[in-house]
């Protein structure tokens, strides 16, 4: 069995600051990490490998620095790693990104594709299902638990909703998007850290894939960013300093005035 795990290197958003003058993100000095949901997807693939036997391939798209995320995945125990990198890929929205990643998965071949549910820098949760559609395979999103029946070749997934969960089964190829709460990703281990040094990271560029230029990059992206803005507030504001008794009375009066009590 061959499992491809799609991962993304993201800035650690808890440390992101906005430049108030230019309205852009200050990325300098912000550490990069493997997106948390994606790290959980790596762990899910490695557990499945231990249970049933499989090769685990990690795949990412990004600039050359994304190699660091792949190295970390190798050190966790992944067997091979591919970096999709090309100037032609730059500026891709989710649809164009999914087109590129799906083309790479087709080339590499996979029985199962695992992704994180969403990336913390974009929070869209779109690329996984879009890849599944391009590959014409079923999808199961929001996976809270995964089990594989090695005998029957059936994947069983606990699919989380806001108010319920489903237990779903699928036989054959499938793409699963995984919640970070599903697994506790293993640490890199010493042997794998040593071994990953000897593993090659392979690069995939536009020339390696069957892609049309009009389907990728800025030109292949149906959505465009029209403008960005930082937060604006426009409420009528009244702030007063009061002792607790008067404060409570003021609140009650204000609620009464609005017919809320």
């Amino acid at each position: 069995m061959k499992i491809i795990v799609c991962i993304k290197q993201v800035p650690n958003t808890t440390e992101i600051k906005i430049d108030p003058v230019t309205n852009t993100l200050k990325r300098d000095g912000v550490p990069s990490i493997i997106n948390p949901d994606d790290k959980s997807a790596i762990e899910a693939a490695l557990s499945l490998k231990e249970k049933c036997g499989a090769t685990v391939t990690v795949l990412t798209m990004g600039p050359m620095q994304a190699e660091k995320a792949l190295r970390e995945a190798l050190a966790m125990g992944a067997d091979e790693a591919f970096l999709l990198t090309d100037r032609a890929f730059a500026g891709s929205d989710t649809l164009a990104t999914s087109t590129i990643i799906a083309a790479a998965i087709k080339k590499l071949g996979a029985d199962l594709v695992f992704c994180g549910r969403q990336a913390i820098d974009g929070d869209t949760a779109q690329v996984g299902p879009q890849i599944a559609e391009h590959l014409d395979i079923p999808q199961i999103t929001y996976a809270a638990a995964i089990d594989y029946d090695c005998e029957r070749d059936v994947l069983r997934v606990k699919r989380q909703f806001e108010d319920r969960y489903q237990v779903l089964e699928v036989k054959g190829k499938c793409l699963v998007t995984v919640l970070s709460s599903m697994t506790k990703p293993r640490y890199m281990n010493v042997w794998d850290i040593v071994e990953q040094d000897e593993k090659e990271i392979s690069f995939i560029t536009f020339a390696d894939l069957e892609l049309n230029r009009e389907d990728i990059g800025l030109n292949g992206s149906p959505t465009k960013v029209k403008s960005t803005a930082t937060k604006q507030f426009d409420k009528t504001i009244e702030t007063v300093e009061l002792d607790p008794e008067s404060a409570a009375q003021t609140i009650v009066d204000a609620l009464k005035a609005r017919h809320l009590i």
């Binding site: 409420k235 009244e238 702030t239 002792d243 607790p244 404060a247 409570a248 009375q249 009650v252 204000a254």
Partner: peptide, 28 residues
């Protein structure tokens, strides 16, 4: 306070207790 329609600088825990008292005393 930048977005509150009514902002009150006061001890929040004490205001909450007082609020509990007066809404109880005068059920509206």
């Amino acid at each position: 306070f930048k977005i509150a329609n009514l902002g009150i600088v006061s001890d929040a825990a004490a205001v909450l207790k007082q609020l509990n008292k007066i809404i109880e005393n005068k059920p509206c």
